[in-house]
Design a protein around this nucleic acid. Structure first.
Length: 183
DNA sequence: AATATGATGTAA
DNA sequence: TACATCATATTT
């Protein structure tokens, strides 16, 4: 999903867009996943149709946006951790709770289709992202399954919630040209 | 580096 | 009831 475009619209009018630059994966076989224990009302969507949005409330304060993956009846998803927005302060959308704040995403999107939604779309990459462009590392803010390297981010992006030691924050704003590209 | 914040699920 | 959580802003 890294390199794909997150677009917030109001019916036909796009109001905000950015490139996804950081994600984490979760699976029901990993202890940090909301679907690890049981299937409940709140995690039901995670067991549902791949491609749907899964939005949960974190620490009672923030909303976090995921896309359900893999297959029905198996809880798994990708958490969108950071988005690059052109001409915006990089801190404004570097973190899962900050993205939803900026893109006005709440639980009303929970369970909705990501591929058929008038208000929140994820569009195909128009930049090439190869394995060498990504840094794969451990996930953030969890206490279980901390060894799994299921977090990825685009090395060349300056808007990341947390960088690995030695990975310099790039000064080149190479994504700028793509973020404003009309669809 | 520590703490306040506070919805919701899970354990006690 | 009590505690932990896929986080962030503010204070120390």
């Amino acid at each position: 999903m890294i390199g794909c475009r997150l677009v917030r619209s109001n019916k036909n009018k796009d109001i905000l867009q950015g490139i996804i630059v950081e994600t984490e994966a979760y699976s029901q076989e990993d202890e940090a996943c909301h679907g690890f224990n049981k299937r409940t009302n709140s995690n039901e969507v995670l067991f549902g149709e791949p491609g749907n949005y899964y939005v949960y409330q974190s620490y009672g304060i923030h909303h976090c946006l995921n896309v359900v993956t893999h297959k029905i009846n198996f809880a798994s998803g990708v958490l969108i951790r950071s988005v690059f927005i052109k001409n915006e302060d990089e801190r404004i959308s570097s973190g899962p709770g900050l993205i939803t704040k900026k893109f006005l995403i709440n639980k009303s999107f929970n369970g909705l289709k990501s591929y058929d939604n008038l208000y929140l779309k994820i569009l195909k990459r128009d930049i090439k992202v190869s394995k060498e462009d990504l840094l794969q590392t451990t996930r953030i803010g969890i206490s279980k399954a901390t060894d799994l390297k299921w977090r990825w981010y685009l090395k060349s992006s300056r808007s990341i919630s947390k960088r690995e030691k030695g990975d310099k924050n790039p000064k080149k704003f190479f994504l700028d040209q793509f973020v404003s590209k009309p669809q």
